[in-house]
Amino acid sequence: MRKALVVGINDYPVNPLDGCVNDAVKVSHVLKTHEDGSINFHVKLMTSPPQTITKPVLRELIEELFAHKNEIALFYFSGHGSITTTGGYIATQDAAKYDVGISMDDILHLANDSPAKDKIIILDCCFSGAMGSPVHAGGGNIARLGDGLTVLTASRSTESSIELDGGGLFTSLLVDALRGGAADLLGNITPGGIYSYIDKALGAWDQRPIFKTNVSRFTSLRQISPQIPLETLRKIPVYFPNPQKDMKLDPTFEDTNVDIAVEKNVKTFKDLQKLFSVGIVRPVGEEYMYFAAMNSKSCRLTSMGYQYWRLVTEGKI
């Protein structure tokens, strides 16, 4: 089972953040299903308002999230964050001067001890980069992540998180990534893909997200339709039995050559053009596949194409 706890808290007594509830609702909505409408995460959405989210309430929910042996346990928080001499905190409704909310170190500890296969923590709050770098780590401020744990935060431990149009800039990009912007060719959206998408969307002077992970493989957080049909990807070794060898083309591959076009070659060429569109194949000596065929040139696999050739030949696709 995939479980997600999504929390948005607006009414922090010192610094209200009006967009936090809306951000949480958006994240909850996109996590619930895959693109085809099939069930993805079983989401518990907690927002204040209208609910009352105190420190004991949120602590109990976080403990419950990480207590069981699920496939994935995901915690998302949008609200106010604080940094003190004892570390980072996410603020709850009952925040007070010397009791802001729940310690990021405590959340890290619960996630590290969780029997869940994969643990994901996503924070859109000020000073969120303190997550994963406990102050009292027995040897300095060093990130200590247990097996299968990934942390993605909006800002560094010294920064306030940036807002855009009443919501968090980070969450806006996160939702776009989950909707498909971060998908690979197979339609998988992984934490690494999400980080890469957000990082590329930001300029050189923009606030950078923080990504920390201790995993041996990336799990997919959401699935969308592949960019090209899987049956087309699986034909790569058919068209390129030797991945180092070019495939010869000629005008019989192009269907506009009505008098000489060969049906089998035309079908092959349509697949090759799809592979070209996603960077798996490139023409040799020409800019476009059309001219490679018309001028009897050839095409070859790109470096990414070789990677997918290997995945298909090893039965991984």
Rank of each mutant, 00 (worst) to 15 (best):
T52F: 12
G187P: 04
D255T: 10
K55D: 07
Q93E: 12
P49S: 10
G129F: 00
W205E: 10
G87M: 08
S296D: 09
V238H: 13
G181M: 05
D11L: 02
H80V: 12
M46L: 15
T150R: 05
V27D: 04
V151C: 03
V21F: 06
L123Q: 04
G305T: 14
V175S: 09
P241H: 05
A293L: 11
R282Y: 15
F77G: 08
Y308L: 03
Q227L: 13
T150K: 02
H80C: 15
N40I: 05
D255Q: 09
I39S: 07
E231S: 13
A177I: 14
P226A: 12
I122L: 07
H42G: 10
E287M: 14
S277L: 10
K69E: 01
G8H: 09
A177F: 03
I107T: 07
V258K: 11
D113G: 13
H80L: 15
A293I: 02
R310Q: 08
V6G: 05
K26S: 15
G285R: 07
G139D: 11
D176M: 10
S78K: 06
H136S: 11
L178R: 03
L311S: 07
V25Y: 01
Q307Y: 15
F276C: 01
L152W: 01
G192L: 00
R300E: 14
I280S: 02
L202S: 01
T190A: 02
I142D: 14
D271Y: 04
M104F: 03
L65M: 11
A201P: 04
P243F: 01
D176H: 09
L275A: 08
I72N: 04
I280C: 05
N257T: 13
H42I: 09
E254N: 11
G166I: 11
Y98T: 08
K97Q: 12
L110S: 02
I107H: 03
